[in-house]
C-alpha cells in the first residue's frame, strides 16, 4: 500500500493509472457501458458525425460506414487490446524469465545459444516474423497471442541473465548452495525475487508495445478475425472514408494512443522507482 501511495505521488504516474483504470473498466464492463450494441448496423445512420442523435441515445463519437456506434465499439475493443497485451506479455515473461534464470545461473551452452537465438530474432523484425507466421498458420486470437508471446521474450533473457550472473556470486546464493539447496530452489526462492523488480519494469513497458503490435496486425487484417471489434480493425475499416468521415479513424486511434501513453507512464514511473539503471531497455 505504501508503495502504491509512493508510486502515485508523481502527477504523471497518477494520470497513467487513471487512464489504465478507465480502460480496464471499459474492458471488464463493456457490455453494460456501451450505449449501443457495438454490432448493430443501421445503413440509414452511416457515417454520422460525433454528437448526432441516434435511435435511443446520442452517437457521441459518430457512426462508422455500417452505421455502428463508434464509441460502443471503442469500449468493446478495449477487451482485445488488454487481453492480447497482458496474455502475450505473460507468455513472454514466463519463457524469458525462466530461460534467463537458467542461462544466468548455469551459464554454459544455453546462455550462448540463447544469445545467438536473440540475434536471430533481432535480424527478423517482429512485424515481419508475425506476417510470416500468420501467413502459414492463419489469423486467430490464439495464434496472435502465441506469436506475440513467443517473439518478445529476448528482452527478459538479456536482463535476467545479466543480473543472475552477478547474483550467482553473492554470499546468500553461495550459502544456499553450500546448505544443499536444489537448483530449482535456488532459482525460484533466491534468484527470482531479486530479479522481480526488473521483470516488472520490462513487463509494463512490454504491454504497451504488445498493444501497439496487436493493433498493427489487426489493421493489416492479420490479427483477430474481423468480426470482433478491435481498435486496429476499426482504423482499417475507416481508412477508405477518411475524406468524408475522419472520426471513424481518429477516435479508435486516439483510444489506442491514450491507452499506450497510460501504460508507458506507469512503466516509466516503475522504472524510476524500482530500477533506475534499466535505461537500455528501449529499442
Amino acid at each position: 500500500m505504501r508503495f502504491v501511495r509512493h508510486f502515485l505521488r508523481e502527477r504523471l504516474a497518477l494520470v497513467g493509472a487513471l487512464i489504465l483504470l478507465v480502460v480496464v473498466v471499459c474492458a471488464v464492463a463493456s457490455v453494460h457501458l456501451a450505449p449501443f450494441d457495438p454490432d448493430d448496423q443501421d445503413i440509414l445512420a452511416r457515417l454520422l458525425p460525433p454528437g448526432s442523435p441516434g435511435g435511443d441515445g446520442t452517437h457521441w463519437l459518430g457512426t462508422d460506414a455500417l452505421g455502428r456506434d463508434v464509441l460502443s465499439r471503442i469500449i468493446v475493443g478495449a477487451r482485445i487490446s488488454l487481453l492480447v497485451g497482458v496474455l502475450a506479455m505473460a507468455i513472454s515473461a514466463v519463457v524469458g524469465i525462466g530461460l534467463g534464470l537458467i542461462a544466468g545461473y548455469e551459464d554454459r551452452y544455453l546462455g550462448r545459444m540463447l544469445m545467438v537465438l536473440g540475434d536471430m530474432q533481432l535480424a527478423v523484425p517482429f512485424l515481419v516474423l508475425a506476417l510470416a507466421v500468420v501467413a502459414v498458420l492463419g489469423a486467430s486470437l490464439a495464434n496472435l497471442v502465441l506469436v506475440l508471446g513467443l517473439t518478445n521474450w529476448v528482452q527478459y533473457v538479456r536482463v535476467v541473465r545479466a543480473e543472475c550472473l552477478v547474483l550467482r556470486e553473492r554470499e546468500f546464493v553461495q550459502a544456499a548452495r553450500a546448505l544443499g539447496a536444489s537448483v530449482p530452489r535456488i532459482l525460484l526462492r533466491h534468484l527470482l525475487p531479486n530479479v522481480a523488480s526488473s521483470a516488472v519494469v520490462i513487463s509494463s513497458l512490454l504491454i504497451a508495445r504488445m498493444i501497439l503490435f496487436e493493433s498493427s496486425l489487426s489493421y493489416l487484417g492479420l490479427g483477430v478475425p474481423p468480426e470482433i471489434p478491435t481498435w486496429g480493425g476499426m482504423i482499417a475499416d475507416g481508412r477508405d472514408y477518411i475524406s468524408t468521415a475522419w472520426w471513424v479513424v481518429a477516435m479508435p486511434g486516439l483510444a489506442l494512443f491514450t491507452t499506450v501513453v497510460g501504460v508507458n507512464l506507469i512503466g516509466d514511473r516503475l522504472r524510476d522507482l524500482l530500477d533506475p539503471g534499466l535505461t537500455q531497455l528501449d529499442g
Binding site: A208, S215, S216, G232, I235, I242, G253, F257, V261
Partner: peptide
C-alpha cells in the same frame, strides 16, 4: 518522446494524410 513512443505508426500515418493531404 512519450507521445512519439506511444503513437500507433499506422494511425499517425493516416492522420498525417488527413491533415496534410486531405
Amino acid at each position: 518522446t512519450l507521445a512519439g513512443q506511444s503513437f500507433p505508426a499506422f494511425w499517425l500515418a493516416i492522420m498525417l494524410i488527413l491533415v496534410f493531404s486531405e
